[in-house]
């Protein structure tokens, strides 16, 4: 028998014990991952008394109820915040993507005057943040207080995403740029017709980063806008946080702790949209990040 005909060990069909061990290990991991989800969902469907009896987390609610969700969705505050959040996320992601692509493309070309300087300036923001008050003062002096723009403009470009995109653009074959130039294309045309169509995966991942960021952002909303413009994350935070500052035992603890079912329902409500979108974008996610990260 020739050496090439001998199958290596790992290509042999697995033994029964090996198979069982794998199944067990994977099942254990799956349970570990799923347990918090199931517990959160089940608790959100339980009554307060039942949650108390189970010490805070219920796995199998005996008499499921949607009361917690009714409380959250009553009054229309959450529904309108949901609409606002979707709009902020859509518009914000589009603006961020456009600005980041423009800047990354500019910085990826050699010979751009001051390119290195601006790249360093952008990278500087990754290491040092200006702090809450200076940010607030800038937003105020730009006249953006209590406007939706205040939720988008201060976080328009993320340095990390910029670096990811710039690296990707730099790794596209130079010949493509040169050919386009010879054909008489300007920078805009090169970007739109050549670079962007070749960068779909990385654009998808950067868009996802931005979208998740906008969806979850609450701090800027808390600082810059009034509650009639709050996105979903901030509104839901209110449900979870009520009475939180009083969570030490104190003489004047007057706010009741929020019902645990409501807290869990809030977690479910804020999870669902990202959970729905994520599986479709997940393949781009790893691919895009690796592209940017490995090829420097």
């Amino acid at each position: 028998m020739r050496a090439a005909d001998v199958r290596p060990k790992w290509m042999e069909p697995p033994t029964r014990i090996g198979l069982a061990a794998k199944v067990l290990a994977l099942a254990a991991i799956a349970v570990l991952v799923l347990y918090p989800f199931v517990a959160v969902l089940s608790t959100s469907l339980s009554s307060e008394a039942e949650i108390s009896r189970h010490g805070g987390l219920v796995l199998f609610p005996t008499s499921p109820t949607l009361d917690a969700y009714r409380v959250i969705f009553a009054g229309g505050v959450v529904t309108s915040a949901l609409v606002r959040s979707i709009l902020i996320t859509a518009v914000g992601t589009a603006c961020s993507l456009a600005a980041t692509v423009g800047m990354a493309y500019g910085l990826s070309r050699r010979g751009v005057v001051g390119g290195r300087f601006f790249l360093l300036v952008a990278l500087f923001t990754m290491l040092f943040s200006p702090g809450v008050i200076p940010n607030f003062l800038v937003v105020k002096q730009l006249g953006l207080l209590d406007t939706y723009a205040a939720l988008v403009l201060p976080t328009l470009i993320s340095a990390f995403n910029l670096v990811v995109l710039r690296s990707f653009f730099m790794n596209l074959p130079t010949e493509l740029y040169e050919a386009a130039r010879i054909d008489g294309a300007g920078d805009f045309r090169v970007l739109l017709r050549i670079v962007l169509p070749l960068s779909k995966s990385v654009l998808a991942v950067v868009a996802l980063f931005y979208a998740v960021g906008y969806w979850n952002a609450f701090f800027n909303a808390m600082l810059y806008v009034n509650d009639d413009k709050w996105p979903l994350a901030m509104v839901l935070r209110q449900f979870v946080l009520q009475g939180q500052s009083l969570n030490d035992t104190v003489s004047s603890s007057e706010t009741s702790v929020p019902a645990q079912a409501i807290q869990m329902a809030v977690v479910v409500v804020s999870l669902v949209p990202i959970l729905v979108v994520y599986p479709f974008l997940q393949r781009y996610f790893t691919k895009g990040v690796l592209t940017g990260a490995v090829k420097g």
Binding site: E48, A49, I51, S52, R53, G55, G56, G243, L246, N247, D248, T249, V250, S251, S252, S253, E254, S256, V257, A259, Q260
Partner: peptide
């Protein structure tokens, strides 16, 4: 946390807790 303390009291796990008198009021 306060929540854990309340749960323990409500289930009879502990017989006495320290919390402010205003926490006596209301449905929760």
């Amino acid at each position: 946390t306060k929540q854990q303390m309340m749960d323990a009291f409500h289930t009879g796990k502990v017989s006495m807790v320290y919390d402010g008198l205003p926490a006596f009021a209301g449905p929760t």
